[in-house]
Amino acid sequence: MKILAVARFTLLRLWHTRYVLAAAVLCLFIFGVQSLAGRGVDSSLTPANTVAMYVSWLAAIWLGISLVQADRQDGTLRSTLTRPISLVEVLLGKLLGGLLYLTLLAAGMTAAVMLGALTDHAPLHWAAATYQIHLLPVHLTVMALSLLLAQVAPRFMAGFLMLFARDKWLLEKITELAGKLTAMAGDTLTGLGRILFFLLPPTSRFYLSYSDFADHSLPASTYLLLLVFSVHYAIAACLLAAWALRRQEL
C-alpha cells in the first residue's frame, strides 16, 4: 500500500510538473510522423512506431535519472523517510509511478500511430498496434538501471551511459564479458555467492534483453520470462540504489 502511495504521489508530481503535457505534445508529434512518413507505404506503422520507441526509451532514461533527484532536491525524499516506510519501498514506488507514466505515454503514442494510420487508410497490424505496450517491461528495466546509475554517478554521466545501451560494439563486448563472468561464477563461487550472482543480474543481461525486446518478435513464453526478469531487475536495482543512497547525505 505504501509503495502505491509513493507511486500515486509520483504521478501527481509528474502531472504538476507538466510531464503529462509533454507526453501529449509527444503524442501529437508521433501523429504527425505517422501522417507524413506513413503515406503511401504498405507496412506504414513502422516509421512512427520506431520514433515512438526512441521517445519512450529517452523518457525512461530521463525519468530514471530525475525521479529520485527531484525528490532529493526539494527535500521531499527526506520528509518521506520520516514516515514508517523503507528506502527500498520508496524507490519501488518511484519506479512504479514512472512505469504508470510510461504506460500512459505508450498508450497515447499507440493511439496517435493508429489515428495517423486510419486517417491515411494504412493497413493495421496487431503486432504493430501493440508494439509500444510490448516494450514497457524493457523500459522498466531501462528506468531501473538509470535510477541506479544516477545514485552512483552524476546525472549527465548516467544519462550518457544509458544512451549507449544499444550500441552494437558495446553489446558484443559486454556479451563476451558476461560469458566470462558467468563461467567464472560457476567455477569459483559457491553457495551464497552463486545465489547472489544470479539474483543480481549482471548489466549484460539488461543489454541482451533490451535487444531481444526491441528488435525481435518474441514467443509468448520468452516474453513472459523476460517480463519476470524485468521486475526482478527493477527490484535488484532498487536494492542497490538504496544501498548507495544510504551512504549519502539525503
Binding site: F9, L12, R13, H16, D74, G75, T76, S79, T82
Partner: peptide, 11 residues
C-alpha cells in the same frame, strides 16, 4: 518536524 518542512510545491 524539520526546521523547514520540505514539501513538493506543486501539490
Amino acid at each position: 518536524l524539520p526546521e523547514e518542512p520540505q514539501m513538493f510545491a506543486g501539490a
